[in-house]
């Protein structure tokens, strides 16, 4: 752990603020709500020598806390085993520190520095765990899976038949095959958006845009056919 933090010190070139050998933190003007502690973090991380070294070490500890916290809240992480889970915690904390140092100049003091930093630790850990958990699962994103069978109350089935048919027709007619596949993968199969992005060698943003457009088109189609109304809101 300490070794990881020490290793990060060798990446001072990645720090996105100030010139080498010059502390630039105190010159930065943050949002009015920023605290002395926020200025301290920024000043120390952009300084040199032992001050910077200590700050990076504290930042790494903060990221370890965020990574462990995130891991403890992911049910699927229990499948990783202790050794692999700890490796992910360490590597996610390392990656989060590097990402934070590279983006220091984007910290504007609109939240506490620790809140701003935590989100990097959480993102890197969540992404790493999801990637690992799905790593041995084959995902076919080139074809659209069919529902397997009908189960449950026969009367409800009859009532739902028209809706189900309309939905499937609307999906087939309103969405491109790629949009259909992304929609089903995320909403029905529960495949995480960043896992899909990995498999398609694209970004989470791009996959979300496809999902967003697919849902928008589907919603318009279902509203036009009277199957849902515009005021419905389900969370």
């Amino acid at each position: 752990m300490a070794n990881n933090a020490e290793g990060l010190l060798e990446r001072e070139d990645a720090i996105d603020s100030g010139k080498p050998g010059e502390a630039s933190g105190p010159d930065v003007v943050l949002a009015a709500a920023a605290t002395e502690e926020d200025y301290d973090w920024l000043g120390e991380l952009t300084s040199t020598g032992s001050g910077q070294r200590d700050a990076i070490k504290r930042l790494h500890e903060l990221m370890l806390r965020a990574a462990r916290f995130k891991l403890s809240r992911m049910g699927e992480a229990s499948r990783l085993g202790h050794v692999r889970a700890d490796e992910i915690v360490q590597s996610s904390a390392d990656e989060a520190v590097v990402a934070i140092l590279a983006k220091l100049s984007t910290f504007e003091g609109r939240s506490r520095f620790t809140t701003w930093a935590y989100k990097f630790g959480i993102l890197h850990t969540a992404t790493a765990v999801r990637r690992e958990v799905w790593s041995n699962t084959e995902i076919d994103l080139s074809s659209i899976p069919e529902p397997t069978s009908r189960l449950g109350d026969p009367v409800a089935h009859v009532e739902g038949l028209a809706l189900s048919g309309a939905l499937r027709r609307c999906i087939a007619e309103c969405l491109t095959p790629h949009q259909q596949r992304i929609l089903i993968a995320i909403t029905v199969e529960g495949i995480p958006i960043d896992v899909i992005a990995d498999r398609l060698h694209t970004t989470r943003n791009t996959v979300y845009k496809t999902l967003h457009e697919a849902r928008r088109r589907l919603r318009e189609g279902l509203i036009a056919q009277g199957y849902i109304n515009t005021t419905e809101e389900v969370n």
Binding site: P147, T148, R150, G152, H157, G160, L183, L218, I228
Partner: peptide, 14 residues
């Protein structure tokens, strides 16, 4: 992934 759960899930998202 039955047709009923499939329909309900996609509809809920829409």
């Amino acid at each position: 992934n039955t047709e009923d759960s499939w329909t309900n899930t996609v509809l809920a998202h829409a």
